[in-house]
Simulated assay, not measured.
Amino acid sequence: MTAVPVASAPLVLGGRTFDARRPAVMGIINRTPDSFFSAARFASLDAALARAREMVTEGIDLIDVGGVRAGQEGGWVDEAEEIDRVRPLLRALRDELPGVVISLDTWRAEVAEACAGLVDLVNDTWAGADPALVDVAARLGAGYVVSHTGGLPPRTDPVGIDYGAGDDAVVGDVLRVLADGAARALAAGVRPDGVLVDPTLDFGKRTIDSLALVRATDRIVALGHPVLQAISRKDFVGEALDLPVDDRLEGTLAATAIAAWQGATVFRAHDVRATRRVLDMVASIRGDRPPARSERGR
């Protein structure tokens, strides 16, 4: 099999360096009562910390903390409540797990500003809906995730989205938006090795669009920035296989392997141990990771 492209620059966060030769796992902790996957809901600080410690044993590289559900379901959460949900956990993670890179999943500049000194990465899941967020990330010295949501505002479900026929329509739009967003991040002062691009599957996309973007991971890698793929248990997996969220692990891991082979650097995941093993196996097949054991004649 032909070797796949690797991002021209590594991703450097929290003093650690990541690249596509051994992709990183970003574990998910949602401080929300209504996350779409119930196993990722952590209402109490103690429960969230316990899960974070468990994820370390499972092979985590980054922890992504969010305080607001992405979709329309669930009540409105204002900035003050979002800060109250995420900041105590971020502080505890910084104190208790100093070797883990910490990401904040928010679209609000005010929330990121309130978490100064506690995060290594700002995961802007709504594509610059708050244009000041990238400036805050730069000022904090944090990395920044450039995302694509089809122009939809935060917490909008993808209804009536149509990029046109064929893979090239949606892929072309995503490539253009991500390239422009990365340029804006660099102009704002985000470090070149801190810019991460995310095609943002499901957000502003039909299932056929998300499947096309998994197939086109190598084209996104070719933009020259490390790529984040947030695949875990998403609706496009469920719709492709006609399965509810609790039964989407195998589909998630299949898409993860495909995207990893094509050169994605970071994978946002609920199922840390399974994702780590899949990524390590892909790296082993590519020749980027030596076997854990090697016995002659077997």
Rank of each mutant, 00 (worst) to 15 (best):
E82Q: 14
E250T: 10
A127Q: 15
R87A: 14
F42E: 06
V197Y: 05
A47V: 04
S294N: 09
A142G: 03
A137F: 10
L211E: 12
S44I: 06
A52F: 09
V282Y: 00
E54S: 12
A292H: 12
R53L: 06
W261K: 01
V195G: 02
R219T: 10
T275W: 03
D288L: 05
T207G: 11
A138N: 13
V56R: 10
V195Q: 03
S103M: 13
S103F: 11
I231E: 00
R94Y: 05
V159Q: 11
A132I: 02
K205W: 02
D105L: 13
E96D: 13
R16I: 02
G59V: 01
T106V: 12
G143Q: 08
L11R: 06
A50W: 03
G59N: 02
A20L: 03
F37T: 02
R31K: 12
W76I: 14
V146H: 01
R293D: 14
A292Q: 15
V237H: 02
L243A: 15
R184K: 15
G67P: 04
D209M: 07
V195K: 01
R268N: 12
R233M: 07
R286G: 15
R206E: 05
E96K: 04
P158V: 06
D34P: 06
A43H: 12
L93K: 06
G14L: 07
V177N: 06
G204I: 10
D235Y: 09
E54H: 09
W261G: 06
P154A: 13
R268A: 05
T252L: 01
T217W: 01
A257Q: 05
S232L: 08
V177C: 11
R21Y: 04
V159W: 11
I208M: 11
I60M: 15
D19H: 03
A260R: 00
G189P: 09
D130Q: 09
R248I: 03
L201R: 00
L49Y: 05
D235M: 11
D78P: 02
T149M: 00
D105F: 11
L104D: 04
K234N: 01
D168A: 15
I60L: 15
R139L: 02
W126P: 04
D198S: 08
D202G: 00
L186T: 07
A254G: 14
P154N: 13
D124H: 05
A137Y: 03
A48T: 09
V177H: 10
F203S: 01
G66N: 08
L241D: 07
G160C: 12
L175A: 13
S8L: 08
H225Q: 11
I231N: 00
C115W: 02
I161G: 08
M281V: 00
S232P: 12
Q72K: 14
Y163H: 11
N30I: 04
D61T: 05
D46P: 04
D167Q: 08
V170F: 01
M1R: 09
